[in-house]
């Protein structure tokens, strides 16, 4: 698998109504399967916007995007949902767990939407929850967990559907340094065990240092690191 560009975006532009300048202004990047890439840049530079487009949560205004060799820049909402379900996992800064669901229910959710039967999805979810060290918290609600625990639940959920691409938007942004480090090493372990591709938006140089390469955004443009194999050629 390695060496095959899973992400292949060319000339991505994103404009929002009522915004004078485009938020993304011709971003081109490729990411190989198995890479860990840090996406950095000042606040408002368009990192989250780019990540959302890479994650098929949103479509570009212009530009092409091939995910795993398939053109996904012009999909319908329904097709994008399918791609997210089967290819992509998200980890967010503010966890985004469903508050009235238990830990177990949150983690089984992608499998539920994939149509996996109840017994199998629970078995798989329990294994993942165990993997992130929370098997004693199966029946807890998100509100009953600490920030670090919540992020670990979110990570378990993000990989439940066995995605090929994991996108994390400031996953340690809401955590203290120690918990943040634990979360980063968990991501790293998972990356190694599952050979998935990881793109992490971060402000934290320590987090960035842990990645194979870094891409810098400013005013919607890549200013450094747009060339491939900068870190692990």
């Amino acid at each position: 698998m390695s060496g095959f560009p899973i992400v292949d975006a060319g000339g991505i532009c994103k404009e929002f109504p009522n915004m004078s300048a485009p938020v993304l202004d011709g971003v081109s990047l490729t990411v190989d399967s198995g890479e860990i890439v840090a996406l950095r840049g000042p606040s408002g530079s368009g990192k989250s916007t780019l990540l959302n487009i890479l994650g098929c949560l949103d479509g570009p205004t212009y530009g092409t995007y091939r995910l795993g060799g398939r053109d996904v820049s012009t999909l319908t909402p329904r097709e994008r949902a399918w791609v997210r379900l089967h290819y992509i996992g998200f980890v967010f800064q503010s966890f985004h767990l469903i508050p009235d669901h238990t830990v177990l229910e949150n983690v089984t959710l992608p499998l539920y939407y994939m149509g996996v039967g109840r017994q199998e999805r629970e078995a798989r979810a329990i294994e993942l929850i165990d993997r992130v060290g929370l098997s004693h918290r199966l029946k807890h609600r998100p509100a009953q967990l600490s920030g670090g625990e919540r992020q670990r639940v979110a990570i378990a959920r993000s990989i439940a559907g066995e995605p090929r691409l994991l996108l994390a938007d400031e996953p340690t942004g809401a955590l203290d340094t120690r918990t943040g480090n634990e979360v980063m090493s968990l991501l790293k372990e998972i990356h190694e065990a599952r050979s998935l591709t990881l793109i992490i938006v971060t402000h934290d140089p320590e987090v960035a240092a842990f990645c194979h390469r870094q891409i810098f955004l400013r005013d919607g443009k890549i200013v450094d690191g747009e060339y491939r194999h900068a870190a692990n050629a």
């Binding site: 997210r84 985004h96 939407y113 994939m114």
Partner: peptide, 16 residues
């Protein structure tokens, strides 16, 4: 709305 966004991000289709 937030919950719907989360489900959607996970990959729930509009129909689901």
């Amino acid at each position: 709305t937030k919950e719907i966004g989360i489900r959607s991000a996970i990959g729930a289709s509009p129909r689901q």
